[in-house]
Deep mutational scan, measured.
Amino acid sequence: NKFNKEQQWATYEILNLPNLNEEQRKAFIDSLKDDPSQSANLLAEAKKLNDAQA
């Protein structure tokens, strides 16, 4: 299913963002699990935070 693929991709991407700390990473991944339909939005937020902390 589409959300499952998006969720897996977003999880992979978030795990590989270098500037997030473990707590932030875990929070994003927990949110992905809670609502896979928000995968794209959550990934965008994670990338923004990652860039802000660069």
Rank of each mutant, 00 (worst) to 15 (best):
N41T: 11
K47M: 11
N21D: 09
A54Y: 11
L17Y: 04
E23V: 13
K33F: 15
K2A: 15
L43T: 04
D34V: 12
A52D: 06
L20S: 00
N50F: 01
L42I: 13
Q24Y: 02
A46P: 00
P18M: 08
K2S: 14
D51W: 14
A10F: 10
F28A: 02
Q7A: 15
N16M: 07
A27M: 13
Q8P: 02
L32V: 10
A52G: 06
N1V: 03
A54I: 08
A54L: 09
N1R: 03
K5M: 04
K48Q: 09
L43P: 00
E22W: 15
A27S: 09
S31R: 14
N21E: 07
K48A: 05
A52I: 11
L17F: 05
L17E: 00
A10D: 02
N4R: 03
K33M: 14
Q7W: 15
L15V: 05
D34S: 13
L20M: 02
L32D: 00
A10Q: 02
K26F: 10
A46E: 00
A10S: 03
S37F: 07
K33R: 12
A52T: 08
R25M: 05
W9I: 13
K2I: 14
K47T: 06
P36H: 03
I14W: 02
L17M: 14
L49E: 03
W9K: 06
N19I: 01
S31L: 10
E13Q: 14
D30H: 13
Q8V: 09
I29Q: 04
K2N: 15
D34P: 02
N21W: 09
N19S: 07
F3N: 15
K48D: 06
D51N: 10
A44S: 11
D30E: 11
E13F: 13
E23T: 09
L43G: 01
E23Y: 14
A46W: 01
N16T: 07
D51A: 14
E45L: 12
K47Y: 14
E45K: 14
A46Q: 00
L15H: 06
K26R: 09
L43E: 02
K2G: 15
K48R: 12
Q7F: 14
A27H: 10
Y12Q: 08
D30I: 10
Q8N: 03
R25H: 03
N21G: 07
L20V: 02
A27E: 07
T11P: 02
L43W: 07
F3H: 15
E22L: 12
D34W: 12
A27Q: 11
Q7L: 15
Q24K: 02
S31H: 10
A52K: 11
N1P: 15
I14E: 01
K33Q: 07
N50R: 01
K2P: 14
N16K: 12
N41Q: 10
K26W: 12
N21T: 13
Y12S: 08
L20N: 00
A40G: 11
W9S: 05
K26M: 13
E6Q: 05
L49R: 04
K48S: 08
K2L: 08
Q24H: 02
R25S: 04
I29M: 10
T11I: 13
N19H: 12
